[in-house]
């Protein structure tokens, strides 16, 4: 199981704080996970499409679209940060 969490504008567009998902074993990267989520959850697909600039963190560390995801990970998706 992978926990996917959303923040800020992306969270509001999805309408959920988080999802617990079990993608097939062929889903091994962040990019593949996003594609799979968009396919399985239309609300997520629309939210991702509306948020083309995104950042990702795996287990609370910044990562890239081609970073590996595995069972048990927490994957956070969010718009570019705007603190400070």
């Amino acid at each position: 199981m992978i926990e996917v969490v959303f923040f800020a504008a992306l969270r509001e567009r999805v309408g959920e704080d988080s999802l617990r998902v079990t993608p097939p074993e062929t889903v091994t990267t962040v990019a593949a996970l996003c594609d799979w989520l968009a396919d399985q959850y239309p609300a997520v697909g629309r939210a991702l499409e509306a948020t083309p600039r995104r950042m990702v963190a795996i287990n609370e560390a910044l990562a890239e679209p081609d970073s590996a995801v595995a069972d048990g990970d927490t994957v956070a998706l969010f718009p570019p940060v705007t603190g400070g």
Partner: peptide
């Protein structure tokens, strides 16, 4: 400050 603004997860409304 420069790195905080581009890498730390915080979002403004």
């Amino acid at each position: 400050m420069d790195v905080l603004k581009s890498q730390v997860p915080l979002w403004k409304k």
